[in-house]
Design a protein around this nucleic acid. Structure first.
Lengths: 204, 204
DNA sequence: ATTTAGTTTAACCATTTGGTTAACAAAAAT
DNA sequence: ATTTTTGTTAACCAAATGGTTAAACTAAAT
């Protein structure tokens, strides 16, 4: 069997497809551009992935499976609520530095085709809020944390972490920053965001 | 001159284009679909707007000029910081109910083509943070509010308000809600978000 | 009544695009 | 050594797409 050769090509295609799909979206991406980016013939894309749709789904699933563990950490590990918030904030920011296009890509494509989410949810280890909710309610009853629903707190944590990267062009304009100063703003958020959240929910 | 007729057609085109562009984006939108939606011949689109690009820009600018006043309110009116946060939160949520596609559309298209923002910024009455910053610093020095940069606070306010609508499909999955229960969650946020922010920044 | 100017349509066009095919190359298996 | 399987390419194809054109239609101005 030829192994090295085709696994290599398949990987090259996925790399190229990831680059093109994540920067232009499903509708804006062109099969020819992906082939050029991978340095191969366009027919190879169909040889390995059959159609644009299936190649796209491969890229999307890859991206989603990178994001999921980030979320599981905050929802299911054993640390305290306060530590979870701190850990999530700092790990999310370093995640973004490695995969800057992922959040935008996922949000954009989910809005284009919300059915994607249905398939994802069928996965039995799709993250859920149960543990986080239980833990939060315990802290609320113990009087450590002000009353808030787990759903709302989860949304707030996600919002404060993810939004600044989604809305980068808009926020750069409003805060009157260049690329560099905006990155600085984002770096400051690593501590800023978690203390903001903790101030909001902690009883004094 | 025939006036009523053509102004009507132009308006119908804009309505249809808004619908199609805002739900499918520039790349996903088809001129034929816009024409069908408007109930007219495809050639009319070019007669009135010359090209897909120009028609798109008309729709984009319309959308943006609906959003801008929302932001100006929080940045430039005379109320206290606390009131601004409350007002923005509740007015933003009712804005979304009237124009549910706008935030997604703007964020998506700005990421596709950040140069759009450059033209917008050239507008002399493009919103800026100066007044908000001055007002916030005064409150911080007076000891009413904990130290935080105006940029970070502004980002946080935007994030908490806008993100839940951008990430609706994702958050519906995580919070395990259907359309109806998710709308309820959003309704709760009208008070939830502003008290969350105020708790985070107010000195006790 | 006729000219004039703007509006609308059907038919058409060139290009782009996702996808296919048939022939060729290179390993593996026999 | 030769057959078979797998990988790769260039050329091709049909459908879709943004855009154009020339003719027909409409209503106001003369």
């Amino acid at each position: 069997m030829k192994k090295s050769k085709d696994e290599n090509t398949e990987q090259q295609i996925l790399e190229a497809a990831k680059f093109v799909f994540q920067s232009k979206g499903m509708d804006g991406a062109r099969m020819q551009e992906i082939a050029d980016q991978a340095g191969i013939n366009k027919a190879m894309l169909h040889y390995y992935f059959r159609s644009k749709q299936l190649l796209f789904e491969a890229v999307f699933n890859n991206a989603f499976s990178l994001l999921a563990p980030q979320l599981k950490a905050i929802l299911n590990d054993e640390s305290s609520i306060e530590d979870k918030i701190k850990n999530f904030t700092s790990s999310y920011i370093s995640f973004i530095l490695q995969h800057p296009y992922i959040p935008n890509f996922i949000i954009q494509e989910l809005n284009r085709n919300p059915d994607f989410m249905i398939k994802m949810k069928e996965n039995p280890n799709f993250p859920n809020l149960d543990k986080f909710k239980y833990q939060l309610n315990k802290d609320i009853q113990a009087g450590i944390i002000k009353p808030i629903s787990a759903e709302q707190l989860f949304i707030n944590i996600m919002a404060l972490n993810v939004f600044p990267f989604l809305a980068k062009p808009l926020l750069m304009a409003f805060t009157n920053s260049e690329n560099e100063t905006y990155s600085q703003l984002m770096a400051e958020r690593e501590t800023e965001v978690s203390s903001f959240i903790i101030n909001a929910i902690k009883k004094n």
